Amino acid sequence: MPVEIHGLNKCDTCRKARKWLDRHGIAYRFIDYRDEPAAPATLKHWADAVGGFESLVNRSGTTWRKLSPSRKSPGSAAEWNLLIREYPALVRRPVLVLANGTVHLGFSDKLYAGLFAANA
């Protein structure tokens, strides 16, 4: 599996991550999860890899803040999946999935330089 970067086309952080990969000659596939929503099993895998849905979801963004209090306490993976399906912008961006299957959230030059040390 090649490197995949999941995010939103108009997200500045996703653009920075893609530019970093381009600058360092790292091939990747970008997936806008509004156009291609992640399957429930994929979301569960990401959540498991990063410490749970609480870590996968951006609770400081406007999308989260606009949710009603009753929607902010999903009780199961299925409920988290429904919430994310309805509001894809809740997922922290970008989600980077490396060829070995590891999952990383967010972007910083330091993070990517460490992950791609051979190419940095």
Rank of each mutant, 00 (worst) to 15 (best):
A17E: 04
K19R: 15
K19G: 05
K19N: 09
K19V: 07
W20D: 05
W20E: 04
D22G: 02
D22S: 06
D22H: 04
G25P: 02
G25I: 03
Y28L: 03
Y28P: 05
Y28F: 13
I31E: 10
Y33F: 15
Y33P: 01
Y33W: 14
R34I: 05
D35A: 12
D35M: 08
E36Q: 14
E36D: 13
A38Y: 00
A41I: 04
T42V: 12
H45Y: 09
W46A: 03
W46M: 03
A49S: 15
V50L: 10
V50I: 13
G51C: 04
G51E: 06
G52I: 08
F53M: 08
F53Y: 15
F53D: 06
F53R: 11
E54H: 11
E54I: 03
S55R: 15
S55H: 14
S55F: 00
S55Q: 15
L56E: 06
V57W: 10
V57Y: 08
N58M: 12
N58T: 12
R59C: 01
R59G: 12
S60W: 01
S60P: 01
T62W: 00
T62D: 08
T63P: 11
T63A: 07
T63I: 12
R65Q: 14
K66G: 05
L67E: 08
K72G: 06
S73Y: 00
P74N: 11
G75S: 13
S76I: 10
S76Y: 01
A78W: 00
E79S: 04
N81C: 15
N81L: 03
L82E: 15
L83T: 08
I84K: 03
R85N: 08
Y87G: 00
Y87M: 04
P88M: 06
A89P: 03
L90E: 05
L90M: 09
L90A: 07
V91C: 06
R92T: 09
P94K: 05
P94C: 06
P94T: 05
V95R: 04
L96A: 10
L96R: 10
V97C: 04
L98A: 12
L98M: 14
A99W: 00
N100R: 02
N100I: 01
G101R: 09
T102E: 15
V103C: 14
H104W: 15
H104Q: 10
G106L: 09
F107S: 09
S108L: 07
S108F: 09
S108G: 13
S108Q: 09
L111A: 14
L111I: 05
Y112A: 10
A113M: 01
G114E: 15
G114A: 10
L115T: 08
L115Q: 11
L115E: 12
F116K: 08
A117I: 07
A117E: 12
